[in-house]
């Protein structure tokens, strides 16, 4: 296959950057010109936040192959630290954009620190124990939030957080998350993480420091969950501990599992659909959790890898195929393409 046409890397980056910027402008114009009403705008923001959550959980579940059940705990840590930061920065002379940026960075870093703290004991353990220890961690965070009202506002919640999460902030965070996770997974660190998923013992005997990479992936996952939490704080304007319970973690897990563990496009699609559906179909809401749980069981029985499996979307790959007139339905025998 010498005469294959390839798209060179700079052109690929060019195409992707153009699309990102175009989408940003389009979204900004639509949301700020009053074309979308309030409900639609808030739906778009929520979808963005859930995309970050699902994609970040996918790092630990899909790529690392563990099953953390406390993702909402990391989100809570991020949300509260960001909310407190933004609230206190209202009084200071900090310009708003800088305060937004710093708040999100603080949210991510605090969540990542918690990720490392929980990761070190948890990741010495295997699968089920890890699931339960992260679940326990999520509960501890929630109990701590309820019982420290002087810092977190306790059960009534943390009120009066400035509503900083507009379309541009959320959109940039989504892009940053996806690009950062994509780049990490393409790097040698990403390959090390994938090798742990495939076979931990084999990875270890190839000289990969499994504990280090597990903690790293965990912290990475927590970092972005923290950012999503910060955005959530700025979206809601108030935080109550109830929104970070076990069900919230499961909600995110459902997105990752349905979309396909290890597929970023799967997480994005599942997060979009599952966030939009309940808001679009009000009557659906009564049966929402029943349908979710049935879906979860059915998908696990009939297609355990999720709807998208491990497929990852690549625009350049599709363009190259079109350039080369190489379509899947024209595939010849003995010409297996690894997707």
């Amino acid at each position: 296959m010498e005469n294959q046409k390839h798209i060179s890397m700079p052109v690929r980056y060019g195409i992707n950057t153009t699309l990102i910027v175009l989408f940003l402008i389009m979204g900004y114009v639509l949301t700020s010109s009053g074309f979308t009403n309030r409900a639609q705008t808030s739906l778009i923001l929520q979808i963005g936040i859930y995309i970050i959550l699902a994609v970040s959980l996918n790092v630990a579940t899909g790529y690392l192959g563990q099953l953390p059940l406390g993702h909402a705990g990391f989100m809570a840590v991020g949300a509260y630290s960001c909310g407190i930061f933004w609230k206190s920065s209202l009084a200071s002379a900090l310009p708003t954009p800088i305060s937004i940026f710093l708040g999100l960075v603080v949210a991510g870093i605090v969540a990542a620190i918690f990720g490392v703290l929980i990761g070190i004991p948890a990741l010495r353990l295997k699968g089920d124990y890890l699931a339960i220890i992260t679940l326990g961690f999520g509960e501890i965070i929630r109990v701590a939030i309820i019982n420290l009202p002087s810092i977190t506002g306790g059960t009534p919640g943390l009120l009066g957080i400035p509503k900083h999460s507009n379309f541009i902030v959320v959109y940039l965070c989504v892009v940053f998350t996806i690009v950062a996770i994509h780049m990490m997974m393409k790097s040698r660190h990403g390959r090390a993480i994938l090798s742990i998923r495939e076979n931990e013992i084999a990875a270890e005997s190839c000289g990969i420091n499994t504990t280090y990479y597990k903690v790293m992936a965990f912290a990475f996952s927590a970092f972005f969950a923290g950012i999503a939490g910060g955005l959530y704080a700025g979206f809601q304007g108030l935080l109550v501990p109830k929104s970070f319970d076990f069900m919230a973690s499961i909600n995110i897990l459902v997105m990752v599992v349905l979309g396909g563990m290890g597929s970023m496009i799967g997480s994005v699609i599942a997060a979009t659909v599952l966030t939009a559906l309940p808001l679009l179909l009000q009557s659906f809401n009564t049966y929402r959790m029943i349908i979710y749980s049935l879906l979860l069981i059915i998908v696990m029985i009939f297609k355990p890898s999720g709807l998208m499996g491990m497929y990852d979307f690549s625009l350049s790959r599709i363009l190259e195929r079109i350039l080369n007139r190489d379509f899947p339905w024209k595939k010849k025998k003995g010409d297996e393409v690894n997707v």
Binding site: L67, M289, S293, L294, L295, I297, M300, I301
Partner: peptide, 10 residues
């Protein structure tokens, strides 16, 4: 494990 979580939710 995920199936078990699904059954519990159901």
């Amino acid at each position: 494990l995920i199936t078990a979580i699904g059954v519990s939710m159901l």
